[in-house]
């Protein structure tokens, strides 16, 4: 098996889906000749031509609006928004149309499109290039929000997203793009959208994370095991919305303790929903208050301070200890 970075794994998913299905079209700013600013669409224009890899003018609202029309016609557009910080330009197209055309037309016009965008901090980027605002989309009924945590699941989830009959917002942690390699099989793999996975088994405490925060969360679990023999179970959400909480509830019923980790701001963040689900499903099993390790309710600072902003391994470890110290 080839060891690929997440960029290469996503590129593989796009290439194979485009080979298999000529209704798959890639569009966006700089996705053609430039291969995308992170090179996720590298070489696709040479393989599939400019009619299937479309360099668009600079207008996110039109990119997404056009993708909606293409999808309603029966194509499977995959649009790239260069950075998630520029997806607000296309907010109303997602909220008012992508998420509702199926509903409004009573099933006549599904919108099987994917919106890919890099999100998150940690790569010394400029302002607007480091946000983690996935909750905007998770909050919109009708959209699916998928966030992989590594090359292999990124590839499988992107294939599933392209094949999905509904609009999928696919956020790619830019800190993960080239952070590490994983063996990715050449044969096409898929992963079900809407299903979290256990990334590490354990019995003492449940750690819940997604996207770029899965790695530090796993590192914290490892440190806790090595240093004090604490067995933390780590759950990787993979799909933020629609959130299937059954695995989370089951795990917390077993461990009685939970810590939720995300880099998005804390208030009204994904953690708030996850904690509420756990209160509904596992309240009587809890041994300690649930902890959240998250970004703060502030504009992501410019890059010299982003390390302090982001949840870190020691912050996660200390949160776990706090929950273990209780009860």
């Amino acid at each position: 098996m080839n060891k690929l970075t997440m960029v290469q794994a996503l590129n593989l998913a796009l290439r194979q889906e485009m080979e298999a299905d000529d209704s798959v079209i890639v569009l966006g700013e700089d996705v053609g000749m430039d291969g995308g600013v992170f090179r996720v669409t590298d070489d696709l224009i040479h393989r599939f031509g400019a009619s299937r890899v479309v360099d668009t003018p600079l207008a996110e609202s039109a990119i997404v609006g056009m993708a909606i029309g293409m999808a309603a016609y029966g194509l499977r557009p995959v649009c790239e928004i260069q950075f998630s910080g520029f997806a607000y330009h296309n907010f109303h197209q997602l909220e008012n149309h992508a998420a509702r055309l199926r509903w409004r037309s009573r099933g006549r016009y599904p919108v099987p499109m994917v919106l890919r965008a890099p999100y998150g901090a940690g790569v010394r980027a400029l302002e607007h290039h480091s946000e983690s605002r996935e909750v905007y989309w998770a909050h919109t009924p009708g959209l699916k929000t998928v966030i992989p945590s590594g090359p292999r699941n990124a590839r499988a989830l992107l294939v599933s997203a392209i094949r999905d009959p509904d609009p999928v917002v696919f956020y790619e942690g830019k800190a993960l793009y080239r952070a590490f390699r994983e063996a990715v099989p050449e044969a096409v793999e898929t992963l079900p959208i809407g299903q979290p996975q256990i990334a590490r088994e354990g019995s003492d405490v449940t750690l819940i994370a997604y996207g770029a925060m899965v790695r530090p969360t796993l590192a914290a679990a490892e440190a806790l095991d090595v240093q004090e023999g604490v067995k933390a179970e780590v759950i990787d959400l993979l799909t933020l919305s629609p959130l299937d909480d059954r695995l989370l509830v089951e795990s917390v019923r077993k461990t009685g303790r939970a810590v939720v980790v995300h880099e998005a701001p804390q208030s009204f963040g994904p953690g708030a929903e996850i904690v509420a689900r756990l209160m509904e499903g596992a309240f009587f099993y809890l041994e300690a208050p649930i902890e959240r390790v998250t970004g703060f309710d502030i504009v992501v600072p410019l890059f010299s301070r982003e390390k302090s902003y982001l949840p870190s391994v020691p912050r996660i470890v200390r949160a776990v200890r706090r929950t273990l110290d209780q009860g």
Partner: peptide, 11 residues
């Protein structure tokens, strides 16, 4: 130019 997009592709 707008990154890699020439004016002819912009308008």
């Amino acid at each position: 130019w707008a990154i890699s997009i020439p004016l002819s592709r912009q308008t």
